[in-house]
């Protein structure tokens, strides 16, 4: 499943990140394969979204969330 399609508050594990630039940036931010992540809230227009990951809050656009393959835990 793609992170973009996951409902708020559901915890998932990151499987892979498709886009290379996005992957490398998320790598620095500690949002890496194997890490658990959950969408905690969304911007009023549904995009961007706020993630809980590695103990802090990270905001990404849906475009980026569509590159992140996840599995529900």
């Amino acid at each position: 499943m793609l992170l973009a399609d996951i409902e708020n508050g559901i915890w998932c594990k990151i499987e892979s990140i498709a886009d290379q630039d996005v992957f490398l940036k998320l790598l620095d931010m500690g949002c890496i394969p194997g890490e658990e992540v959950s969408i905690i809230y969304r911007a009023p227009l549904g995009d961007p979204i706020a993630l809980k990951v590695s103990g802090y809050t990270l905001s990404v656009r849906l475009d980026e969330a569509r590159k992140i393959e996840v599995k529900k835990v």
Partner: peptide, 12 residues
């Protein structure tokens, strides 16, 4: 830019 993403920390 080649890198066109918006990945931002939400500080406490």
């Amino acid at each position: 830019d080649k890198k066109n993403y918006f990945i931002m920390e939400m500080p406490v």
